[in-house]
Design a protein around this nucleic acid. Structure first.
Length: 129
RNA sequence: CAAGUAGAUCGCCUUAUCGCUGUCCUGUCCCAAUUGCUAUUGGGACGGGAUGGAGGAAAGUCCGAACACCAUAGUGCAAUCAUAGUGGCUAACGGCCACCCACCGUGAGGUGAGGAAAAGUGCAACAGAAAGCAAGUACAGGUCAUGCUGUAGUGAAACCAGGUAAACUCUAUGUGGUGCAAUGUCAUGUAAACUAACGUUGACCUGCCUGUCAUCGAUUAUUUGAUGGAGGCAGUCGGGAGCGUGCACGCGCGAUUGUUAGAGGGUAGACAGCUAAAGUUUGCUGGUAACAGUAAACGCAGAUAAAUGAUGAGGGCUUUUCUUUUUUAGGAUUUAGAUUCUAGAAAAUGAAACGUACAGAAUUCGGCUUAUAGAUUUGCUUACUCA
RNA sequence: UGGCCUAUGGUGUAACUGGUAACACGUUGGUUUUUGGUACCAAAGAGUCUAGGUUCGAGACCUAGUGGGCCAA
């Protein structure tokens, strides 16, 4: 898996997102929180992910955009190390639940923790039994 | 120099690596259509290359328009809302420009919802005799006599055709509604489904078609022609539940698949709208100016859980501190030169640290309002005091 | 994206057509009680979200902003 994050890797279906929030499970690594749901896609992409920042915590569009960019960048750089050999397909949504802006180093570190937790919990359990 | 005042312009830069997104070109493979085949067209997957990619406010959504639909957006009345010196600019405006007037400021300048109080209705706490049909205090003057005259006192305002219209109102002008989540096409899906209420067409002649019916004519007969009647279609004139903005008029739409309401079902995807426009820059001409005309060049974001970013390195800019140098004042040591301490000022291809604003397109324009670190630049002003 | 409403002591609400912010609960102090509660008495606590304007005078009227809330596929 390359270090890309193009249109196909993004979670775009409104219907699927509603289903994800109503039925999905979640794990957290503050200030990040991930909601995920096992599903299947038509176009051969194993993981589709989206990011979200609450308007309640960040009033200004510039701040929201900046945090979302940082989260996307962190996801793009580290997804390949965890998701390379998976047979299942997942929809992911990563939320920012903190209330203050942070720098890229912290988000990168927390994203690694989050993806590590996710892979331990879901990906390895599926293959072992 | 300092303080101020009115404008104008800009609002971080360079580079390496990894990414996001639009457009164009192009390679390999797969699918479909056409063809006898090469091949062509369309779609998809994986690649490669070129090139474009946030703002002065993109913000607030406060005005004005374009555009789309509702009827081609009409007429009268009413209501609502807006505007309000004069003239001009503009596609339009509640915007802009010029001038007049009023107020503020020493001044440069600033602010102004700046029509009407002699059409009418209302309002004015406290104080005061009295707050506007009027009534009348004290002192002085005056008169035949009297609030007849002046002054005082209360108050923001006391008879002035008073004040107040950002009180109602009147005058003039304007104002239909909904907003790109408009609107159109395709896809998906039940359903031309269900429940309730209401409604669903007559006349006339003309034309065409049908050829079942009646009469008459031609023909041996099949058949064919004419007239009348019947049916259908089209046209004309009406009726029609209702629908189309508050009312009325007028106009339009309107039925085998109607109108209104209820309950319920599906989708929430794609494409168009969608970025060439009252366009941007520069020069010249006209105009006091806003602005207009003209010539040349440019061709400038188009995302949709929503692109324009991340990391590293270097450089600008601002502020502070330190260091060094120069210099001023005072003190100490010394015969003098000189050395040194304290306080202040200025400068630096010096060093370090911190900071580098406000803020993110969502149909598109013209304005207004609000936020904004800092930098550049132009015009103008300075009463009093001190030098 | 488009539209609408609202803001008054710590909390919840009043304030008529502009006239100098009221009530309840809560808080503080006192009385009653052996003590606490209840009850009674008294006091403090906002200058009306912010900034301008109109007016003699604004919580109210006008303009601009800030915060909070609601609606529309």
């Amino acid at each position: 898996m390359a270090l890309t994050y193009s249109k196909k890797d993004k979670l775009k279906s409104r219907k699927l997102i509603e289903k994800l929030f109503s039925e999905g499970r979640s794990i957290a690594a503050y200030p990040l929180r991930m909601v995920y749901l096992k599903t299947s896609f038509d176009d051969g992409v194993a993981f589709k992910a989206g990011v979200s920042v609450s308007k309640r915590n960040f009033k200004k569009a510039v701040q929201r955009n900046h945090i979302k960019r940082l989260m996307r960048e962190a996801y793009r750089c580290h997804k390949s190390t965890y998701f390379n050999n998976s047979s299942n397909e997942f929809a992911l949504m990563i939320l920012y639940i903190g209330k203050e802006t942070v720098d890229f180093a912290l988000i990168e570190k927390k994203m690694q923790q989050l993806l590590n937790k996710f892979s331990e919990k879901e990906l390895t359990d599926k293959t072992a039994p």
